[in-house]
Nucleic acid binder design. Structure first.
Length: 743
DNA sequence: CGTGGGCGGATTTTT
DNA sequence: TCCGCCCACG
């Protein structure tokens, strides 16, 4: 391959990165600056210019989606096979490594991956077994506590027990949890990384082997690495390997789950001769959008520094809509969407982004009313669904009877008369004998009362028999049989309502997924490998919605995506920045980065909105516009309903918040000066009030007194009326909200 | 064993 | 307000 072909399509900075010397490299890639492209071309460059064997390259990403995309683009670009190259997530690669070295890692050959749901179940059980009050020791929190230690690379034995009761207790749960995983041959997500790393440190020969092999490591989204991932990388790289780290400190939004933005700084200290290249030219957004993003992020401290620019045009101004309440906001968004669609655009080219999932409901209702198809991201993913988890648990139990999490899940699903007392007895026996639940169940079955005995024995026999029956079948047939024999399919089929229907469909989908599955490792069974995929991959690549629809998602899930039209809804204090993150400077900065991420998703048109009044947790709240809006230069913003004054809904209006705390009085300069926005009426619009107004009619307004109607604009709930007041002069009012009485 | 009412909590999410 | 979870009841 001609090296020029690799560099040709790139700009100067991209070229510099791609053709940098074969040494450590840090690429600061701004949003929309062609990050993935640089990564892929860099690999091509390594292969074609430096003669690196694909076999010696490892490329690490955070999500399976990113890994798949990288692989696809590599294969398109490189004219040699990418076989032998390791491309995957930290977890996926660690898993691969542990499968190859299970014995050295001290794992059973058939070890199984525990997803967070399973992990929670195990922790719940441990908590109960320790006779801890679940209200005082919520398993969710314990899970979080354990995981954050593991993400930092700390085992239970490494944590010092200060004798402080809370910490002591959590620590012993951690220990018990580790023991339970050990017994069941279960490995949670953090464990994959931790154990790989420990094995490298422990086994010098093994580490040397991998270091020898992978002389070239590339890491995407470097700002999202957590401590154990960084340690993992450092250990594997050693002093010799050349590491290319690509990331953007301004897009670090996962600090709350352990990502260490500092790693990107630390990288320059820990690795020798790191060359730094900044990618600042943006190919995605208009200048107005980029300038807004730059202005917002400039308020953060300690950045590595970066300024996005484009050689494209200014584009449309950014629209800011000051909604009366969340209903009004939703309706405005729907109106704008309809205009957009009417102008011949695809719905799928637009996205509505929000800070928290709870915000989607109102938006969905408005879209539903307008008959606009939409898709909400972030629900339960395929492999997380109850019926799928049930089916997978059966498969796991078939492969490994020691899998307690699986046992607990299916022993009485579908219900087969194995009640809590029986299960408690099994648990107790398992605990006293320190054996897995399955073994304990077998042991105590005969000593149970007849009914329970039969039920339990029936279950045990069924699983054993099933294993023999499906032994020679193809994966999909195996699963099909399991669904049938265990009664799972029938059970979900008889669930009432639509729910059962979808569940059966999902189970059928599972069988098709099995049919489509190609195992990679001939040494291991197909079902084992399928289960690994199910644990490590959320499965959201499949079942993509086909219909052209508006995309709804949180700001977090929007990272990495782009849309010609983007709405940022709910730009209010306490919502965004979220109340939980406002106090600490560090967390506030992360919110600001999130805002930066949101703004830079927009390609052509960005519409931001906030609600003066929002119903939240059953309360009418008035949060005021987000501080991030104030950080955008006013000349970039076009306020759709600029207001000179704000009145509050009658019930909550009081003079103390009339001026000083009214956001608009500190807000950006208004463009133009015409209409006046007036809040009025509680919780919505009064359609009937917009009727019966005619030109010349005398009306009375609660604040402005009497006046004469001198003009109309718009229709329906958006209709506005121009009233010439005796004392205040002419003002535009939104008919549906201003409490006008005819005189 | 399944459901319905009462209660408390209510960012963000990948692997 | 609304949703999910827990417990009590049928």
């Amino acid at each position: 391959m001609n090296p020029e072909l690799i560099l040709d399509p790139l700009n100067a900075a991209q070229r510099e990165a791609v053709s940098a010397p074969d040494a450590n490299l840090l690429v600061l890639a701004g949003a929309g600056s062609g990050k993935t492209r640089v990564l892929v071309h860099r690999i091509a460059w390594l292969v074609h210019e430096f003669g690196v064997m694909p076999f010696g390259i490892m490329a690490v990403t955070f999500t399976n989606k990113a890994a798949a995309e990288m692989r696809a683009r590599l294969e398109q670009m490189l004219d040699i096979s990418t076989r032998g190259m390791w491309v995957g997530t930290f977890h996926g690669l660690s898993h691969r490594f542990l499968r190859a070295h299970w014995e050295q890692a001290g794992l059973p050959q058939n070890f199984q991956i525990l997803d967070s749901d399973d992990q929670l179940r195990v922790i719940k059980r441990v908590t109960r077994d320790m006779n801890l009050d679940e209200d005082r020791w919520p398993p969710k929190q314990t899970q979080w506590w354990i995981n954050s230690h593991k993400d930092e690379g700390r085992r239970a034995f490494e944590i010092e027990d200060h004798g402080e009761p809370v910490q002591s207790t959590l620590l012993s749960v951690y220990r018990q949890y580790e023991a339970a995983c050990e017994r069941g041959g279960m490995v949670d997500f953090a464990e994959l990384l931790l154990r790989s790393w420990e094995l490298w440190l422990k086994d010098a020969a093994l580490l040397a082997h991998y270091r020898q092999r992978f002389q070239h490591l590339l890491v995407d989204e470097f700002q999202d690495t957590n401590t154990i991932q960084y340690k993992w990388l450092r250990a594997l790289a050693g002093p010799e390997a050349r590491v290319t780290a690509v990331g953007d400190d301004d897009q670090s939004i996962y600090g709350w789950r352990g990502a260490k933005i500092e790693n990107i700084h630390q990288f320059q200290r820990d690795f020798t001769g790191v060359r730094l290249v900044r990618l600042e030219q943006n190919y995605r957004s208009t200048a107005n959008i980029l300038n807004a993003a730059n202005a917002v992020i400039a308020n953060n401290y300690g950045r590595l520094g970066k300024n996005l620019w484009t050689d494209g045009g200014e584009g449309d101004p950014i629209t800011l809509y000051a909604a009366f309440n969340e209903q009004d906001e939703a309706r405005y968004i729907v109106d704008e969407l309809q205009k957009w669609i009417a102008a011949g655009h695809q719905r799928a080219e637009s996205a509505i982004l929000y800070r928290s999932n709870a915000q989607s409901r109102v938006l969905e209702e408005a879209l539903l009313r307008a008959g606009i198809p939409y898709r909400v991201y972030g629900g339960l993913r395929f492999y997380e669904r109850l019926e799928i988890k049930n089916a997978l648990a059966y498969l796991r139990l078939l492969l490994n009877r020691n899998d307690d999490a699986a046992f607990e899940r299916v022993v009485n699903t579908p219900p087969r008369g194995i009640g809590t007392s029986t299960i408690d007895a099994i648990r107790a026996a398992a605990r006293t004998r320190s054996v897995p639940l399955w073994a304990a169940a077998k042991d105590i079955a005969s000593s149970l009362p007849a009914r329970a005995r039969n039920a339990l024995q029936g279950f045990i026999d069924m699983v054993n028999q099933l294993q023999r029956d499906i032994d020679s079948l193809e994966l999909a047939e195996k699963v099909d049989r399991v669904l049938l024999v265990t009664g799972l399919l029938e059970y979900h089929r008889t669930e009432k309502g639509e729910r059962g229907e979808t569940r059966v469909e999902n189970l059928e989908e599972l069988v098709s997924a099995c049919r489509a599955f190609t195992p990679e490792d001939p040494e291991r069974g197909a079902m084992e490998q399928f289960l690994d995929t199910a644990s490590l991959d959320a499965g959201d690549t499949q079942a993509e919605e086909f219909e052209d629809s508006v995309q709804l998602m949180t700001l977090h899930s929007a990272k990495g995506l782009e849309y010609p039209l983007v709405f940022l809804a709910g730009m209010e204090e306490n919502l965004f920045p979220h109340a939980m993150s406002r106090e600490e400077p560090g967390r506030l900065e992360e919110e600001r980065r999130l805002c930066y991420v949101g703004i830079t998703r927009a390609m052509q048109r960005l519409i931001m909105s906030y609600a003066e009044s929002r119903r939240l947790h059953g309360r009418e709240t008035m949060n005021g516009m987000s501080r991030f809006l104030r950080e955008i230069p006013p000349e970039l913003l076009q306020e759709i309903r600029p207001r000179l004054q704000v009145t509050r809904p009658m019930g909550s209006w009081n003079s103390s918040n009339k001026w000083g705390q009214t956001p608009i009085s500190h807000g950006p300069k208004k463009m133009g000066s015409d209409p006046i926005f007036l809040g009025g009426g509680r919780g919505g619009f009064r359609q009937e009030e917009s009727e019966g107004l005619r030109l010349g009619q005398r009306v009375r307004h609660p604040r402005f007194g009497e006046g004469v109607v001198i003009g109309f604009e718009g229709q329906g709930a958006h209709a506005r009326v121009n009233v010439n007041f005796a004392t205040e002069g002419a003002k535009w009012l939104v008919v549906s909200m201003a409490k006008l009485e005819s005189v």
